[in-house]
Amino acid sequence: MNRAILQGLCVLQLLGSPLAADEPIMNMMPRWAGGWGYQFVEEYRRESDLLLGDRKAYPGFTEDVHLMHLQGVYTWDRSIRLTAKLPYVLDARREMPDGLGGKKTEYDNGIGDLTLALPLKKYFNLDGRSGSWTFKPLLRVPLSGDDEYEIYDKEWGEGLELGYEFETANWAFGVSTSGWLNHSNKPFESFSSLDIGYNFQALGSNGTIFWETDFHYEDDGSETLSAGPAFYWNFNDTTHLRIEWKHDFHDRQGILDHGNGDTFKIGIGFVF
C-alpha cells in the first residue's frame, strides 16, 4: 500500500502566485470562482493652486477633498468579474476668485457617480511567474447631486481599460491604460498607470511595497503625472489593508482648475 501521505501532510507543487489590477479588492483578489468581497477606502486630497495651463493663475487657492469609497466585487469565474465603486464626498471645499480680487469658498457633499466594470482576464502561468491580460469595459452611472460645485460630473460615461500584469515570488509589475468617453461637452480622458512592487513576508504573513505612477490626460490640454509609494498588508485570508500616497510631479490644466496636489488613501478590505 502506498504509505502515501507524510503523516497527514499533502505536498504539491504549483505554478503561479497572486497578482494585481486596479479594482477591488486591493487590486488583487478574489481570484477564485465564486469569490466576492468589499472594501472601504478613505481618501484625502489637497491641491495647492488654481492653475491655467502650466502657470499658477491663482497661487495658494486650495482645494481639499475628503472621500469615502465603498467598493465591491464578485467573481463568477477567474476570467470574468463584476466590480462596483461608489464614492461618497464626506467634505469638499475649494477656493475660487470672487471677481473682486478676493476669494470665495465653494462646498460639495454627498454621493458621487457609480462606476461599474467587467474585468475580463486571461491568466498565464509560467515557471516562477504568473500574470494576466485584462480587457475591461467600464460604465459610469450619474448619481451625484447638485451643490455649489461637484467633484463628480453627474454624467453617463463609457470607458475601456487594457492591462497587463505579472508577479514572481519577490516582484510585482502592472501596467494599464484606459479611455473614457463622456457625454455632453466633457472632454475625452485617459488614465494610465505603471506599478512596481516588492513582495515580503513578516510576522507570519505577507505584504507588498509598491511604487506607483499615474498619468491622467484630458483632451482639453489637461495632464497630471503623479507618483508615490503604496503598502499592502495581508492580515489573514479575509482581511487586507492598503495605504498609499501620491504627489503631483507635473500638473497642467487646460481650463482653470486646481492642481499641484497630494493624495493619501487608506483602505481595508474583506474577501470571502
Partner: peptide, 21 residues
Amino acid sequence: LIAKAVDDAGYVAVEWYTMDT
C-alpha cells in the same frame, strides 16, 4: 479536487508528492 480548486483560482497544479518506503 485539488487540481480543480487550483485551476478555478487561475493557477496550475503541477505535481504532488508522497513518501513510499
